[in-house]
């Protein structure tokens, strides 16, 4: 009996620890007060409305969106062929390739960011946006390879041979038979990659330049100068956006199978 009570207590504490901050942020964002505080003073939508009036947020949101969408697309463009090659062929350096591709997950972002800045951006004088795009592509690539690999491993390879014997070329078989069957895996990889890229802080921190900031970086620097609840309101909005995306993905794709 006591064991049961203890179990529920631990469970409640863990859940509180995991989702408690979310409620705090939402409450803080809906505050009527002048500064970021919890518990909120009063209730109003003024800070939510203000979020949409801050120009830099609009710009950085657009940049983050573009990076997330195009970086993830680029990662899939590279990742799908890599996953396919790893799944179907006995490559001589398969393990090495797997490790290299997974490296950005294992190596701390702060090191990746510093390394990219020191050895790529500075010596080659790369544009800030280009550097960010390359970095985000690399960061998302491991997820793309992993998730797509998982769905390729569930797909029998003999359907490609069947397609070839029915007259398709090898490439045709890939597009007609393989791609349609890993579609949901690719979509799951896209969503995971999108969220990863969108929430990326440490690497972007090093690569952001004058006037070019991703949204999370912009929020940090906004906080440094202005300590009002609009950041909390923005964070809450983003959280709801993420929840909506993951909910839809789970509803239509069974997202959790791939992650």
């Amino acid at each position: 009996m006591n064991g049961r009570v203890l179990q529920y207590l631990v469970l409640t504490l863990v859940l509180l620890f995991l989702i408690g901050p979310f409620f705090i942020i939402v409450a803080a964002g809906l505050s009527a007060g002048e500064s970021l505080a919890f518990p909120p003073q009063g209730l109003s939508f003024r800070w939510v409305i203000k979020v949409f009036q801050i120009d830099s947020f609009r710009d950085s949101f657009a940049l983050s969106m573009a990076l997330a969408v195009f970086g993830t697309l680029a990662a899939l463009f590279l990742g799908v062929p890599i996953a396919y090659a790893l799944a179907r062929y006995k490559l001589p350096f398969a393990e090495t390739l797997r490790t290299v591709v997974s490296a950005p997950i294992i190596v701390p972002g702060i090191i990746v960011g510093l390394a990219l800045l020191r050895y790529l951006v500075v010596p080659l004088d790369v544009e800030v946006v280009t550097a960010l795009f390359a970095a985000h592509t690399a960061l998302v690539l491991p997820y793309a390879v992993r998730v797509v690999s998982a769905s390729l491993n569930n797909l029998r390879s003999d359907i490609e041979e069947a397609a070839v014997l029915l007259g398709a070329s090898r490439l045709g078989a890939f597009f007609r038979v393989v791609l349609p069957n890993i579609r949901s895996g690719i979509l799951a990889a896209f969503i995971l990659g999108f969220v990863t890229s969108f929430n990326q802080v440490p690497v972007s921190l090093f690569l952001s330049g004058p006037g070019v900031r991703t949204l999370p970086i912009d929020m940090i620097s906004y906080l440094e100068t202005t300590y009002d609840p609009s950041v909390a309101a923005l964070a809450a909005l983003l959280a709801f956006l993420s929840i909506a995306i993951v909910f839809l993905a789970e509803r239509f794709l069974g997202f959790s199978r791939y992650v």
């Binding site: 797909l155 029998r156 003999d158 359907i159 041979e161 069947a162 397609a163 070839v164 014997l165 029915l166 007259g167 398709a168 070329s169 007609r176 038979v177 349609p180 069957n181 579609r183």
Partner: peptide, 27 residues
């Protein structure tokens, strides 16, 4: 292989899971 006009029924059947029975046959 795709120019030989040799048909094959695989042990696992290797049907295309995303296509209906008729579309499998029509492939």
């Amino acid at each position: 292989a795709n120019k030989r006009n040799v048909g094959m029924v695989f042990q696992s059947y290797a049907l295309f899971p995303h296509l209906s029975v008729a579309e499998n046959v029509a492939f």
